[in-house]
Each structure stands twice: as C-alpha cells, then as structure tokens.
Amino acid sequence: MDNIGTHSLDFFELDHNENTKAMGRSLTNRILTGICVTLSLLTMIPLISIIVLLLKNGLPLLSASIFTELPPAAGMTGGGFGNAIIGTLVMVGLGLAISTPVGILSAIFINEYSQTSRLSRAVRFVAKLLTGIPSIICGVFAFAIVVLPNQTFSAFAGGVALSVLMLPTILLTAEQALMGVQNAYREASYGLGATRFQTIVRVVLPDALPAMMTGIMLAVARAAGETAPLIFTALFSQYWASSLNEPTASLAVLIYNFSTVPFPHQVSMAWTASLVLVAFVTIANVAAQTIFARKN
C-alpha cells in the first residue's frame, strides 16, 4: 500500500484544485437548498389566495339568516342555504350509517378473525382499489342502483353514493387502529378466560376506538366536500326536503350551481357557502387529528 498514512502537515490544504472544488460543491449545495426552499414556500401562495378570497367574498353575506332561509331564485337577492346545510348533514349521516358498520365489522374480521384468509386479502385489496376510484363513479353507481329503479333523484341515493366513498377510509383506518392494539392486551384477556367476542368488545375495541373515530372524521370531512357523487343522485332543490326520497340540496352542489350563473348575488352566495363548507371540513379534519394526537 502506498503512503496512505503520510500527510502534509496541514491536512486541510489538500491540493489547491480539490479545495476549489470543495468550495464549488458547497456553493452548488447552497443554490439547490435555495431552490428547494423557494419551491416549498411557493405552495403557500395558492392556499393563502384561496383563504383570502373565501374570507373577502364569503364574509359579507355571512349572517344568521343564511343558515335558516331557502336559496333565492335566479336573479333574486336575499335568502340563504339552510336546506343545503341540512341536506349535506343528512346525506353525510346516511353515508355514515351505511359505511361505518360495514367498514368496522370488515376491519374486525380481517384483523381479529382471519388475517391471512383469502377473503381478508380480498377485503384489503378491494378497499385499496375503492380509495382509488373516482368519486364520480360512486355517483354513477348510486344512479344505477337507486335513482333508475326509483325514478327520482333523492337524498337516499346521495347517501348511498357517499357511503361507497367513505367505506374504504373507514375500513382501512379501523384496520390500522386494531393493528395498533397491543397483543399483550388480547393475550391477557384470553388468559383470564374471555372468549374472542368478549376480548374484542371489552378490550380491543375500547382501545382502538379513538383511532377509529379519526378515520370516521376523515371520511366525514371528505364526504361533506364532495360534489361529484351528489350532482346526479341527490341533484338539487330550492326547497326544504320533506322525505329522503326527493331531490335534495347540498352545500357542494349549491356552490357548483351558483358559481356558473351570471348573477352576482348567487356568486357571492357560492363564496359564502364555500366558506362554510371549508370551515366545516377543517373542523372535521382538526377534530380527527386531535383525537389521533390524544391517542398517541
């Protein structure tokens, strides 16, 4: 081996050439850092723009009456979107009522009863695929199985569409939640003579509940903002709904309808509805993360 061990007295003065290179490399390093930081900070622009416009255009019409009155007819002023808020809440609630039991029971099956069976693997695979299908397909599906047979657009159809949308989120987060429960708890429960059912209900579920709630809140936040699944299932209505089997207004569809009309008052109302919707979605998301953070 040649003189690897020998050294010039000042080790930093390698050769001049290499020192220059090192300085060049440090400079390149700094430039790349600058580019990366700049690009990252750039993302704040759209968000700030959206928030500023939501406040600027949405706040003026925000009042108590907007939550209680019906939408104005074309070209008219005044009114509100009380029916759309109720409609959104009802349809999200319907979606939850369908997807929560199916999602959580499926999650229990694939994590507590048979982790590796063919059915369990199929459930995981399908849930992954369902997260990837476009939300409008949920609407097409509900159109085919509810709207066509019933010959009417309805809140029920909207709820079915949203339930398909929510199912994978609820199922996959519930599975994560169950996986997060320590096996020692299960073993302790079995060791005390509990059955599997008792173990699941008394030990596993209580421990997994906060994380499951996170998934449910995330699903609510996503469903509340969705327009595509509702646009031709629940359609829209200018009036208060009296049953689940008639066209029903929702905030998201109201924003869509009003944003493309030539009447300034309706456009303002679309902004106000957007503000309300974003506020609701943000609260649901923050709630989801708070629950999650507390659990950890």
């Binding site: 007295l9 000042d10 080790f11 930093f12 390698l14 290499e18 020192n19 090192a22 490399r25 440090s26």
Partner: peptide
Amino acid sequence: LGKSIYDKSVEVISLRRS
C-alpha cells in the same frame, strides 16, 4: 494535527474526507 477542525477555512466536507 494542531489545527482546529472548527476553523473558518475548514470545509466540513473536506474534514469528513480526512
């Protein structure tokens, strides 16, 4: 070798090669 590794003239990348 008697020279501070925190000296301003020291590029940390050269130090780590040494």
